[in-house]
Design a protein around this nucleic acid. Structure first.
Lengths: 172, 172
DNA sequence: GTACTTGGTTCGGATTCCGAACCCACTACG
DNA sequence: CGTAGTGGGTTCGGAATCCGAACCAAGTAC
C-alpha cells in the first residue's frame, strides 16, 4: 500500500489543469504565508488596507498583491465605504466566509498542539458563550465521528477509488 | 467598527514571541506551498520519500526540507520499516492526524467554491459510506451551527476581549 | 499652502525556492 | 567482482519572491 495512493493520483491527477484534489486548488489561492493571516484578520473584523498592514506588519506591496489576488479569486470584495475621500474596504464574500471552518480548524490545531492548550483566543458559540467544537458529522447516521472513520471515494472526475483509513493506528 | 479588531490586536498581539493567534503558530509550520500537499498525501497513505516525490512532483531538496521540518515539529515520525536496505517512512503522529479537520475543511472549500461542486474526491463516513459533513458543534446546546454564530473570547494570554460576529452580514 | 491620512506603486537588495546534477548505501544480477 | 538500479539524500547556482524605504496621489484639516 502506498501503491494505492499513487494509483489514484496517476488515475485522477494527470495534473492536466484541475488538480486531483481540491486541497491543491484551495492552496493555489491560499497557499502563501500571508494570505491566511490576512483572512484571519478579516474574520476578526479588519477591513481596511492600513489596518491589515498595521496588524500584520506586512510589507505594503505584498499586502497590495495579496488583497488583489483575493479579490480576483472572489474571496474578498472591494467596496467604497466613503466617497468624499475615496476610501474602500475589503470585505469577505460568501466564498470568503466559507473558509471559516478551515481557519477554525487551523486555530484549534495550533491551540492544542502548539500553544499547549493555552489558547490565545477561544472561539465560543455566541448564543450560549460556551467553547465550540468542530466535528465530522454524518447526517445519515446522525452522529459525529473522528478522522479515523473517514474514507474517501472518487468524485466526479476521479475514476478509481481507495480509502484512507489505513492510517488508523498511526501513532499508537 | 474595525477599531475593535485593532484594539484587540494591539492589546493581545504585541508579537513578543508567541503570536496572538494560534493560526499564526500553525502557519509557522504549515505555511508553505508544499507542506499541506505533503500532508494531504500522507492522509492518503503515502509514506515514503520517493512516493511523495513522485506524487507531488516536488523538488527533492524541498521535500527533504519539508519532511525534516515536519518531523522536527512532531507532525511526522520517521521510522525504519526495513533494516537490511535501510528504508524509512514518514508516518503521521497524533499531532499530524489532528490536522485532519483542517485538511478536510480546505478540501471541502475547494470542492464547493473552486471545483464547482465537482469534488474530485468525496469523503465519506466509513461505516455507512455516506458523505460526511463538517460542523461547528456546541455540546452545551447540543446543536450544530454556522460560522455566523461564532464569537471569540480571550484565552489564557489575551487580556482584552472582542467578538467577530460583526461580519455576520458580510455578503448580503 | 502646509501638514496629515489613506491607499497605494516603484525600486533595489536580501531571502528563499527550486530544478538539475551529483552522491552514497544497499541489492540484484551476471 | 563489476555494473546497473533503487531509495534517500545533499550541493550548487539561477530564478522567483519578499520586503523596507522611498515616492506618489487624492483628499481633508487647519
Amino acid at each position: 500500500m502506498g501503491d494505492v495512493a499513487r494509483e489514484i493520483h496517476t488515475a485522477g491527477g494527470g495534473s492536466a489543469d484541475a488538480p486531483a484534489c481540491s486541497i491543491q486548488a484551495s492552496l493555489d489561492i491560499l497557499g502563501d504565508r500571508w494570505t491566511i493571516l490576512i483572512l484571519r484578520d478579516a474574520f476578526r473584523g479588519v477591513r481596511r488596507f492600513a489596518d491589515f498592514q498595521r496588524d500584520l506588519q506586512i510589507a505594503r506591496p505584498v499586502l497590495t498583491d495579496r488583497l488583489k489576488r483575493l479579490v480576483d479569486a472572489g474571496v474578498f470584495q472591494k467596496q467604497l465605504y466613503c466617497e468624499r475621500p475615496p476610501r474602500h474596504e475589503y470585505r469577505l464574500t460568501a466564498m470568503g466566509m466559507a473558509l471559516s471552518p478551515a481557519l477554525v480548524a487551523l486555530m484549534r490545531w495550533g491551540d492544542e498542539w502548539l500553544s499547549g492548550g493555552q489558547a490565545p483566543t477561544v472561539l465560543v458559540h455566541e448564543p450560549c458563550g460556551h467553547p465550540l467544537d468542530q466535528q465530522f458529522v454524518c447526517w445519515e447516521c446522525d452522529e459525529t465521528f473522528t478522522p479515523h472513520e473517514i474514507a474517501s471515494r472518487p468524485g466526479s472526475g476521479t475514476p478509481a477509488g481507495f480509502d484512507t483509513d489505513t492510517d488508523t493506528e498511526t501513532e499508537t
